[in-house]
Structures are given as C-alpha cells and as structure tokens.
Design a protein around this nucleic acid. Sequence first.
DNA 1: ATTATAATTTGCCATATGGCAAAAGTCAAT
DNA 2: ATTGACTTTTGCCATATGGCAAATTATAAT
Lengths: 128, 128
Amino acid sequence: MNDSVSDLGKILKQQRINTPLTLQELAAESGVSSSHLGRIERGERFPSARILRKIAKPLGFSEDELFTLAGFLSPQTSGVAEEGVSRYNSRQLDPYVARMLAEEPPEIQRAVIGILSLLKSIARGISK
Amino acid sequence: MNDSVSDLGKILKQQRINTPLTLQELAAESGVSSSHLGRIERGERFPSARILRKIAKPLGFSEDELFTLAGFLSPQTSGVAEEGVSRYNSRQLDPYVARMLAEEPPEIQRAVIGILSLLKSIARGISK
DNA sequence: ATTATAATTTGCCATATGGCAAAAGTCAAT
DNA sequence: ATTGACTTTTGCCATATGGCAAATTATAAT
C-alpha cells in the first residue's frame, strides 16, 4: 500500500464531514452499507471500483477524480511506461487539493498560502 | 451478470488475438496470471480495476477506455460532471496559489487542506 | 500415429470485499 | 446519573478475486 492509498480513507472522510453527511446518510444516498463505508474511511477495507463509483456523486467527486485518488487511474495522461516509477512527482498539485482549494474565493486561497509560509518560517525558526 | 459484462471478456479476447498475444504472453507482460486472464475472457471472473489497469497497455487500450468498457466509468467523463455541480465550477484556482502549493510535497498539500477545513469548522461553530 | 511443445482450462486455496445485525460510543435533554 | 436517539464500530458470514500447479487440449514435427 502506498501513500495515496492509505490517504484515501482520510480524504473520503474529510469530504463526507465537510459536506456534511453521516455515514448512514452517505450509505442511504450511495447504496453502500454504512459499516463498509466506515471501514473504508479508517483504512480497514479498500473500496472497489463499483463502490467508488457509487459514492462519487454524493460526495461531490467526479468519478475520474476518485479513481485517480484510489490509484485506479494514473494521473492525467494514460500510458506511463514503467510501473516502478516509485517516486511521486512532487512538483504537481494533488487533484484533490486543487479541487478543495478551488472552492474557496481567491482571497481565501491566497490567505492559505500566506498561512503556509508563516508556518514554514516559524518551523524554520524552531529548528534552528 | 449483464450483457456488457459478459461482452467484456469477448472484447478482451478479441483484442488479445488481434494483437496478437497468447494468454501466457499477455500474462508475462501484464503481470496477471494466465489462468485468471483466461477466466476473465470467458466470463468466469470479472476483472478488478487493478487487473484492468495492468492489462490495458499490453492490449493497447487506454485505461479510461477499458474502465468504461467494464462499466467502472460512465461513458465520456473527462473531469467535468454534467449534472448539478453548480456549487463547484463557479470558482477557479488562482494560478499563483497553485504554483506555490505545487512546490510542497503531497502530504503537506493535504495537510493544508486539513487545516483549512478545521478553521472553517471552527468559524462555523463561532458564528452559530 | 506418436511424441514433443506450447496454450488453455480446471481444481484448489488464500485473501479481499461488502452486507447485516448486534454492540459500543456520543450527545442532548431531562 | 439516566434515558433516548443517533452514529460509528465490530462480529460474522457469504461471495468474489486471483494465483499456483496439475490436467487437458491444440499444434506441430517427425
């Protein structure tokens, strides 16, 4: 299991909480049992494509997006030659992150960056 | 099992024969056992997303294409959902913000979103 | 036909998925 | 504290997936 996979549960939960929905409500809307959804969120089960597809709309994801997050689709273009390309491209913006941030108005988006650099400079100060 | 599902096997076999490849060769190239591939072709098993992804390239399919054939993706989704997405497409990601965030590793990017939603939920609590 | 070789199918099994119902937490209002 | 209404987690089980090795079935080549 790689990072993105173990993160999937967190992402799904965060999105559900944000929406906001309870597990039971999501279960009702998606047709997936709440117990299974719970296990998926805490990483005890990995959702199949069928399940992913069912929960996409209620959570406001596009199918592609969820599939990419789940590692079922490779990001963006099809046809990456090597599967052992182990290292994640760190110069890319996580699609989930992009989508979440895009929902915020521009001033909030920039404030987020401001806070981030503030935190980074604080961290730099501490580590010195 | 419905029609389209039982068709998938025929399609895959057709494509393999056309390529041309034997089951064993496809197995070698895809990393999926030939016995499993055989069962998939004759409809005794249904391929998971992981398996589909593995065999896509050797067979000359794009991932999207195979996923759509398998019924995992609804036909013609390219990131933009056709339905009630009013809440989401209204906004765009500031290019500057995108550039700054893209320089951070994925876990930081997601942490930023986590902090943002935390702040938002706190704010919601206050305003109530 | 007979053997050799490659290709496909089958038997068996280990593991993963996912649902249902019961148990365990949460939380507000007495 | 206790009740009652939700929400989440757990126990258990039925089913599906997928690999390995043996068995079967083509396909040639003497």
